[in-house]
Write a protein that binds this DNA or RNA. Structure first.
Lengths: 192, 192
DNA sequence: TCAGCCTATTCAATTTGTTGAGTAGGTGTC
DNA sequence: GACACCTACTCAACAAATTGAATAGGCTGA
């Protein structure tokens, strides 16, 4: 039930097309929720049916016509009341962790490569987060921004996302060290 | 497709019933994947059909008979080859982050309460992780364990889970500070 | 000029995940 | 001795997510 509210929350930033949202909710970009384009188009359809968002067609030059969605009054109310409801406890669901859990029955070299790829992905995401951060701060210092800005939600979720990716990076480095040490120890014990 | 492999990975620890796995995959406990009991029973049924796990009935005294599952040779092979496949990039999906993203249109006091609850949840999870850690280390030091233990996968995923909850705790504290400062600033600006 | 990518969306099929109820005996407690 | 809770599972229905393909014009570079 959260995609619904994630979409409404995204529309707090202003009106957007399904395509715009698809970019925002892309797994490589998203900092508070992710979804595929298909999910978004369907959800927007439903939200429009419930009149939580309004839709209008915007013709463009040199581009396909798009449908632009905006929060309605009742959409805003729905979002406000959602913020007060208890969140369902979220737990880990990361493919890579399953692979690491099973690491000892698999191929160490292959796993090492996957961990390196994840680290690279995290670095890319951190770079994007940093750009978003600068856009939000817009020259102001963090403390000043957090005290005075009209909306701090997006910044606070960004901080969470950034911390998550930094932690990912540290963890990847740790895993690689451990794997390397074990390889070395194994090489010394079973020389061939 | 990952629940399948998460279940296989869990069975690396030894045979287990659906009920045992349900406890392990509980959202409040899981450190590498979570799932509901219903999902697990269905998945185990499928895995047994594919002969990736074997099932046998175990009668107990004073308790209902249980069905205990164990990895088969081909299950182990499937898991090993899974560890080499690229993981799908996982992105955030946390209800609380959506609420924080939309915080500025909601009720600050209500949100503060939710953040405090999340912090309490994280503290509980950290305590459970710490117990699991001690059980894994079994008196050995971390460095020694990581160099010599037969399986390090479970420990490495545990480290990731622990770092995640610690980060959660720090972030919750930060959010609460920001909210309090803004409340104070608002109180000073609009005294009534 | 042709391939490949970008905008912008839709349809259909399948797989996953969630929710609620139901069965059935045993244990603990006030 | 009534009520709640624990073990251990099953069935059914529904909602959400994923995957793959299709449409269709414009734009970019070799």
């Amino acid at each position: 039930m959260s995609l619904k509210h994630a979409v409404l929350a995204a529309l707090l930033e202003g009106e957007a097309s399904g395509y715009d949202l698809a970019k925002l909710f892309d797994a490589a970009v998203a900092n508070f929720w992710s979804a595929t384009p298909q999910q978004l188009y369907r959800e927007l359809e439903r939200l429009a049916d419930e009149e939580l968002v309004s839709a209008r067609l915007v013709a463009q030059e040199r581009r396909p016509t798009k449908r632009v969605f905006a929060l309605t009054e009742s959409g805003l109310r729905a979002l406000a009341s959602f913020t007060g409801e208890p969140p369902r406890p979220t737990a880990v669901r990361d493919d890579l962790l399953v692979k690491i859990q099973a690491l000892d029955c698999g191929d160490p070299a292959g796993v090492r490569e996957l961990v390196e790829e994840r680290a690279a992905f995290s670095r890319g995401k951190l770079a994007r987060y940093e750009r978003l951060r600068e856009r939000l701060l817009d020259g102001r210092g963090e403390e000043e921004y957090l005290r005075r800005a009209e909306r701090v939600g997006p910044y606070l979720t960004l901080l969470r996302g950034r911390a998550f990716e930094e932690e990912n990076l540290r963890w990847c480095a740790r895993v690689l060290t451990v794997l390397a040490e074990r390889e070395a120890a194994r090489g010394a014990a079973e020389p061939r």
